[in-house]
Design a protein around this nucleic acid. Sequence first.
DNA 1: TAATTTTGTCCATATTTGGGCCAAATGAGA
DNA 2: TCTCATTTGGCCCAAATATGGACAAAATTA
Lengths: 406, 406
Amino acid sequence: MRRIDPNNFRVATRATPRQINRQIALSLVRARQPISRADLARWMNMRRGAVSLIVNALIEEGIIFEGATGETSRGRKPKFLFVDTRSRCAVAVDIRPTRTYFMVTDLVGRPLVGITSFPTEREPKRFVSELASRIQHVLSDHEELGECAGVGIVVPGMVDRSGSRVLFAPRLGWHDLSLLEPLEVALGLPVSIENSGRACALAQLWATRGGSATPDDFVFVSVSDGLGVGVIVKGELLRGQHNVAGEFGHMALSIEGPRCACGANGCWEAYVSNLATLSRYFGRDLTEEQPRPIEAAMLTIDDLIALAHSGDAKALGALQSTARYLGLGLASLVNAVDPARIYIGGEIAAAWDLIEVIVRTSLKERTLRPVGRHVEIIVVPASDYPRLKGAAALVAAPSFAAPVVA
Amino acid sequence: MRRIDPNNFRVATRATPRQINRQIALSLVRARQPISRADLARWMNMRRGAVSLIVNALIEEGIIFEGATGETSRGRKPKFLFVDTRSRCAVAVDIRPTRTYFMVTDLVGRPLVGITSFPTEREPKRFVSELASRIQHVLSDHEELGECAGVGIVVPGMVDRSGSRVLFAPRLGWHDLSLLEPLEVALGLPVSIENSGRACALAQLWATRGGSATPDDFVFVSVSDGLGVGVIVKGELLRGQHNVAGEFGHMALSIEGPRCACGANGCWEAYVSNLATLSRYFGRDLTEEQPRPIEAAMLTIDDLIALAHSGDAKALGALQSTARYLGLGLASLVNAVDPARIYIGGEIAAAWDLIEVIVRTSLKERTLRPVGRHVEIIVVPASDYPRLKGAAALVAAPSFAAPVVA
DNA sequence: TAATTTTGTCCATATTTGGGCCAAATGAGA
DNA sequence: TCTCATTTGGCCCAAATATGGACAAAATTA
């Protein structure tokens, strides 16, 4: 039950039904490939003739293609349809405080060449030229991948509404930095930029698994240097007025709590970020130390998790405290957006076996009855590289998105 | 950029453009009435012919009607179009812990007869029969109001996804109560039920003011016995998986804070509800006392606000503490959903002159830079009866809502 | 009185879906 | 081996809708 904005609407034209059904057919081919025209028609409750018209137009445009012949028990064999992943590719880039990772994927987000990385150069101009040159090298080294449809970039910070400027990326020291335009000029390719936590949510939204369908309402919580949260509402990323919605990391857990990098006190992030966990391990507030605390350089969160796995009680205790605060914060999040599922990513995913019970217990402790206590929690391991998949989704997803009407 | 759910989509038919444009035209007539066919065509960027077809169909259906002739500087005078508010009405009901209020409105939410109220009977069967009988009396007493299109009801509690059951209304003592079906049977009219805080948001969303347009992303915070929050995202109420999204009242402000009625500690609601303010005034936790604390029976929040206005330092101090916590909680809310505007309702609206500065200061204190610090705050006085208007919107809004496509 | 402007209606046209029909391909059964 | 049923995919026509232009009616202005 959406209100039509009297100042911002789109009237339907004769071409609108075709646009709508075209996107539905394309989405179905994407989700259920390989699929025949006849099957598509059955899924869509349309005549085969109408579907054929759409499909042939999509083939004409090079969006999908006809592949192998399928099998049926009787009758003429179907010609299978696929989303075209041969002639086009996308570049996914994950900018992190210390290193920048990138890979080339096809248009449904499957990696085509392995992940490459290089140290993140913080000086914007030099960073842009280095990234552009590396991308161009990979693309020219692999001309068999076909034309590059675009570059998707995720950053640990806020991005403005147009997606062209990085408003604030504290760990990179970037303030109101125009990143899109110089990169597009340097690369000659369309570029999309998004916050990394939200991109993780996008990666899950657009993931094409076989059986289990992704729900339309879920959240992704990425526990890492910071705390990134992406909220999906009705199959769409929650953006808000300035494209900064979803910053649950800076929701209060205790207004008198420890100081957070954002300047406020007791943000959720200040309790559960990797640095918070390490601080707890060392019994000292590492966030105060600039630019980087010595301990964090010597012992990473991955090391701490390994220690906990090998029986180190202090490391386990630090993680369990984090788990408790993670669960308590998740409860506020669940009360606020009532998601069908919670994805948890970041380095802490590797410690899930150690913290799951605590997270679930403290989540239930604060979750409103009578619902919301059975939220599904899915852990996304780092080996799934959710941020890079999110970056890839930035490029590929728009062509599969629903048209805007009314 | 919405994903099309491969398991739940709607294909467009030949009739789809007409459905879409019909709803747009209807929304425009609603928002800009009185308006002529030619003006409508200009707003919609369509030919007058096509608009005439739609308009005449709407007139045929009795949804809109042709009223007075308008004025132009030259040329033929237009026939103005209006949403039909003569032949149909709606009943809006606001169930509160102590009293239940109701009124009859037209289909754009304007009151037609004054507000009536009666003590809320907590025994469900008796409540249903009393409410039904009172509604039937009013409708039969005012047959000139025309046919009743439905009854909208708001309750201080959670409602299930189908809108038929009250899952939990603590202050009424209602648990998993089927309310819709018995009322529809007793009344012979369609009934809609919604949480009151969210209904307040709906009331603002569907309000038809002259000039100032309501944004598509905003929140309504109703500070009353409890703390009701309604979140509007892209012109639509945030509902979540179980229809309980938006319970920011039970987001933590301090996990070690005072006990909340929900069982958890330090919920925002426990800091800013009317009872919390009164507790602060009396220097004693009134929430613990059951069924009702003596002080709250003797001094209402309205009395406290009057005292503060007349210079009572203790009352003012209690309100100012509430203001501070209200602002701090709003900051979490702003960080989470990045709204364009915040509406604040409830009894505390009457004290806005005393608390505005503190609310704004503490809101800024925790709001992430660089955006979100200029959120517009609009206070909705009780005299606007936002809950009743929300109840009316439950009946009227569906016929103006955008069609679901793709 | 004539010209101009504005509103609302009407008609032919292009686009798109839906239904029906047909050819091709393939396996099952006589 | 031949026939028939089944399935896929393509083609044509009818129905529905927006588009574009023409036109009458109504009112003001020169």
